[in-house]
Design a protein around this nucleic acid. Sequence first.
DNA 1: AGGGTGACCCGTACACCGTTCGGAACGGTG
DNA 2: CACCGTTCCGAACGGTGTACGGGTCACCCT
Lengths: 246, 246
Amino acid sequence: MAAKGQPYPSVWARPERRRREQPALSREQIVAEALAILDAEGLEALSMRKLGTRLNAGATSMYSHVTNKDELIELVLDEVYGEIRIPLPEGPDGWREAARSSAHAVRAAVLRHPWMASVLGDIALASLGPNVLRMSEDMLTLFETSGFTPEHAGTAMNTLIAFVMGGTLSEAAWLAGLARSDQDEEQWMARMMPAAEAAVLPYPRVRRQFDALKETGSEQSRGSEFDLGLDVLLDGLALLRTPAAG
Amino acid sequence: MAAKGQPYPSVWARPERRRREQPALSREQIVAEALAILDAEGLEALSMRKLGTRLNAGATSMYSHVTNKDELIELVLDEVYGEIRIPLPEGPDGWREAARSSAHAVRAAVLRHPWMASVLGDIALASLGPNVLRMSEDMLTLFETSGFTPEHAGTAMNTLIAFVMGGTLSEAAWLAGLARSDQDEEQWMARMMPAAEAAVLPYPRVRRQFDALKETGSEQSRGSEFDLGLDVLLDGLALLRTPAAG
DNA sequence: AGGGTGACCCGTACACCGTTCGGAACGGTG
DNA sequence: CACCGTTCCGAACGGTGTACGGGTCACCCT
């Protein structure tokens, strides 16, 4: 009479299935755990089955709270956007500092969650999560209260995040690849070097850049390259401003 | 004596296996067909099995020419980079036009192959394909022959492609999503509108941008936004230049 | 009190994926 | 003619996302 497999499925042995005082799973919980997996092991490691196991749930139990894996990722992405704080400008020329700080905040968020790079191409700004929208609103506020017309504030925002995303993308991809390889940046670098040296050889100017980068050490050089580019862009944005308003 | 399954494995029934006068498959051929699939049906549609079928080959026949699906994609990506032409600057202030044209060339290539957006995050500039390197070399030449020091040429290049990639990424993601949906941009837009309107409602400045975009029509507006941002960036780069050299 | 209802959970199953493996077919070489 | 290295491929392994249907409960309405 025993059910197949289980030795003694007697009523008494059953662990008294937990009361459903409240739903065992919630969207928040699912999103949080997915984010944890993504940060710890990267995009490829996130499977619905593993997510279910981590939540002490079945493989398909999340589908009542989330329609799709894609939708789940969209939710997680918006969660990350929630980490980004856009400051208000202080003083008449505070917009520059505020914009710089915003750019760094975005960059930091992406670098904290390098899997984002692999996901942006599928979703990008097509999503309408509350946190992206809030971030956009704050950024528009930053520029519009600093002598930019609404139109110019729009291009300022778009240009800024285009630069930040584009610049951070390759860094994040590097970090993600690094994480997948279970190696130091140094080890990984050492392993790459010979191939890179050889590949770069026929291109003298690229080679020169490459050699320069070798001396600085890639980690700092990445950050300061970002800052240089950011300053170039802020210089450009300054010309767009109508300094009348404060 | 018949092999199991096959009714009559007689020599005569055999389709006279094609002479191997030259290897039936080549890396070029594989990459070309993969590119065709990617352009026609997007990243998700590219499977090794389908690729094999398209090439009148078995599902695993490509593995002698390419070690990995990832490596295959890397090859295809470099193929696309090969489409991009970087002009030399003409005249003393020609660098601006040349840079602008380069930016447009990159953007056009990405928009022609929107699946690139989904792939850049996995590979980005970590790859060392000949075409990326050639492109970089040409771009460095552009700036270095136009009054930029080698260091400044480096940041100029990095900043420019960061902006272009970041800005085009979201456009490409939009196009890719569009392609997946088998709908017009108009139909798709119409389907999105209500949700977008509602989502945007609590954010007045975002809403304003959104309404402005609605009038222009998204297609042109995307292009002109890019141009505006590009000009901002070129203004910034102009300040970096040391106009002494020509 | 008790029957109905609807939300939730999950075992099973399907179609597909990338890739490994072993062997078959072949051109060229000894 | 025997051998060898390369290329091709059928079968199989261990995964994937998710549709489906049935089970289980908390709650509500008689």
